[in-house]
Structure formats: C-alpha cells, structure tokens
Design a protein around this nucleic acid. Structure first.
Lengths: 117, 117
DNA sequence: TTGATATATTCCTATATGGGTATATGATCT
DNA sequence: AGATCATATACCCATATAGGAATATATCAA
C-alpha cells in the first residue's frame, strides 16, 4: 500500500506546511484565493489545489461572490488532532508536573487519614 | 516536488494512524517491539519501520535490554502540533464562545465607566 | 557450534504526491 | 461578442511511501 491520501483525514491534510499556512491566514477571516496566493507567495494553481484538499477534509468552506470564491476556516475539522495531541500535553508541560506533585500529596494525605467515612 | 518525507517533522510522522497507535501504546510505558507487534496486529518489520520514523522525528527513544529494544515515548516532539492546533480551539469550543461573551461584557462595562485609570 | 529469539534492513511494487505549466471554466466589463 | 479577471483542472515528473516477503544482525540458550 502507498501512503494515505492527503485527503484521508485532517492529520494528513495538515501535514503539509503550506496548508497550515493557508489555515493560519484564514484564521484572520474569509479570503479570496488571490489573497492567499499573495500571502503564501505560491503560484495560483498550487493554492487552488491545496484549498481543494482542505475542502475535502472539511477544514475550509467556500462561498461564491461574483467571480471570486471566498474561503473561510472551519476549525471543527481540526478537533480530532487537538483531542489526540492533548493527551500528550503532560509530557512537556511543567504545569502538569506540578499537578502530579499535588495529586501525589493528596493521595498520601488520604492514606494517612485512614480513608474517612 | 513530491510529498514531504514522513520523517520531515512530527506532523508528517504522526499523519499515519499506525504510528499514532504506537505512541498511544507507549504512553502506557516502555515497551519492547514485540509488545507493539501484538498490540497493533501488524507484522514485525512494519512495526520496526514505523518505529524508525518515530525515532527520526524524536517522538520515541530506545534503550537496549538484552536482545530486546525497549521503546519509550518522548512526547516533547509533539509539542509543535499541540501549539499549532491550540490556536484553533476557539473554533469549536463552547467554553471559548462563553469567554467571548464575558470579554464583550467587560469591554462594554469599561466603556460605560469612562475608563477610569 | 548450533539453534532459537528479537529486531532491523533490503528489495519489491502500486500509488499519491506537490510543484510547474498550460489550459479550461466562469463572471464581469466594454 | 470580445477582452479581462478569478479560479479550477489537466498533464507531466521525480520522489517517497506502506505493506509484503526474505534476509541480515545480535543476543541468549544448550
């Protein structure tokens, strides 16, 4: 088998840096394709192709406005990524380390108490 | 140009579901390759290859123990993903919507106040 | 040394990619 | 209708993939 399609899911779609860049720009509001072309410094067909991928995974929506097509962010498609990676936050966050200490203390105290009730 | 290598960064490495699965298992603690083989129901060479990718992006570390190689999670490599996607959390989170309301109210009150230094 | 176990590497192949370039489609203006 | 602007699609190509199968490497056992 070959690698999964970029359109297979948000993880694959967003693995490409240009597509993350596009989303980052769209986070600032609805934009026509040409704005993105200028913002990314990429050729127009390339941008259109990236937008197609993002559309297919539901990360952007489109709206026709005269001869322009206005793209808008749909962050909901990124939730699975967030949900997955959030579980690893404790791996690097000091705040979670501190939380671990607090919880350990609580547990110890509880045991010293004789368990209440 | 072709698609970026899976080893190019954590985004690409983690786009493959099997590799996320591996990390999920390793989140439960250090494991030899064969444990992962059983857990994923994948052939051993495939697992070794996925582990290589994860190693190259720094998402796992290895340690030799007799004839086994124990793999352990290094979640730090996933931080860039978390950092990026976190910025989009408000797109789907009701809590952020509520926060927006609160902030809007605060702002209105401030204006009514006359701004008082 | 021979054998068994644990893991990594090599070779194969179909497939999808991303950029480049040219062209098609569609809307607006003159 | 013809010209122009905005966007999408088609085609070409070098490249890296993921799994399958076979094999290499290393450690431990007898």
């Amino acid at each position: 088998m070959a690698r999964a399609a970029t359109t297979a899911d948000a993880f694959n779609a967003v693995a490409e840096p240009r597509r993350r860049q596009i989303l980052d720009v769209l986070a600032g509001g609805e934009r026509p394709v040409n704005d993105l072309v200028r913002a990314l410094g990429l050729a127009q067909p390339q941008v259109s192709k990236h937008l197609r991928v993002l559309r297919e995974v539901g990360a952007v929506d489109v709206r026709d406005e005269g001869r322009q097509r206005l793209y808008r962010l749909n962050g909901h498609a990124l939730k699975p990524i967030h949900d997955w990676v959030k579980g690893y936050e404790r791996s690097w966050s000091e705040r979670f380390d501190e939380l671990d200490v607090v919880l350990a203390n609580l547990k110890q105290k509880e045991q010293g108490d004789g368990g209440g009730k």
